[in-house]
Write a protein that binds this DNA or RNA. Structure first.
Lengths: 191, 191
DNA sequence: ACCTGAACACCGTTCAAGT
DNA sequence: ACCTGAACACCGTTCAAGT
């Protein structure tokens, strides 16, 4: 049966999850799917386009939180960020893939749209909500990348629980700091 | 006269500044320096090692601010971040290069050491100062990358001052939010 | 419509051998 | 000490030709 775009994306997600971005080449994908490299380009315009779909699939399992009342918006934001983190933290180089997708097609990642929505709901004007989202996103992706690096360098898994919790702690600290800073900058949030 | 490591680094900075990271290959460098590719590997262990030195050179022009009294630490931090931004904003893909250097050799970039120092001076305990620095760094590099992307997509330089100021505004907004959030999280800062 | 075969124009790294 | 020549094992993308 003929190769499908879905199959191509699924295989890409699989190779990424198991071996990382360095091993995710078009040639590797072709080998994995038992076709010639050229065949892939009938289903997909370029590797970058494929990676956008990979990013969307990585975030596909994140459910949309219920729309909060304004006073609860910061909580909804924090929990959405947590969910995004858990969806990405086990996939090597996922931060890089999301960043690329976000820069290529800013509307391709639905959960990031919700994030903007909740920030505005919290009383932040649109333009500044865009800045604020950038801030939160840079922190999310940055802390995921840092955590994965530190694990990669760890080598022998001595005290692995230790570094894993440290990564989570750093993430939550940053979210707290940013949300507090935002509520100071925009009076509308507090209760 | 023989090729030197300095020459190699300088040429790399030059190619990066003019053409970006995609064009910064060992083979391109060799062509530029009129040697064979192999020659480069006598002066440098790997491309990654070279990029660490490139990153250090990019930040080499940033002067160390005078050590502030604790109450002035946030100001010193904000001005150091500004200087880092101006050093990097004109160099394509500089954020990526800094991030790589920072992950390969966390002590190679002196100004980032100063940043940690000032955060502790502001009354933030060491461990959390490390998180806070990450937060500021992710914002700095993220906003530089975003600004350069938006310029790349702009194509025709219509209303170029507009987007340039928008990038600066987003950057300053983020720094403000983070510093305010930090001062809320750590009581020691206010005057 | 979907894929093969083969090419084009590249990569980073290594290393015997030269000077 | 410093560099060349040549190889090894890869890349992403294109495209005539096949089925």
């Amino acid at each position: 049966m003929a190769l499908t775009r879905e199959q191509l994306i699924d295989t890409a997600v699989d190779v990424l999850s198991r071996f990382g971005l360095a091993d995710l080449s078009m040639r590797r994908l072709a080998r994995e799917l038992d076709v010639q490299v050229g065949a892939l380009y009938w289903h997909v315009k370029s590797k970058q386009e494929l990676l956008v779909d990979v990013a969307a699939k990585l975030l596909g399992s994140v459910p949309r939180p219920a729309t909060p009342v304004p006073a609860m918006a910061p909580l909804a934001i924090a929990s959405l960020l947590q969910q995004l983190r858990t969806a990405l933290i086990t996939v090597p180089d996922s931060a890089e893939v999301i960043q690329l997708a976000q820069s290529m097609r800013p509307d391709a990642l639905a959960p990031l749209g919700w994030l903007l929505e909740f920030l505005q709901l919290a009383g932040i004007p649109r333009e500044q909500a865009l800045f604020a989202r950038h801030l939160l996103l840079n922190h999310l992706l940055g802390s995921i990348a840092a955590h994965q690096e530190s694990q990669a360098l760890a080598g022998t898994p001595e005290a692995e629980g230790n570094t894993a919790e440290l990564g989570l702690e750093a993430f939550e600290y940053g979210v707290r700091v940013i949300l507090q800073g935002l509520s100071l900058e925009h009076a509308a949030v507090g209760a």
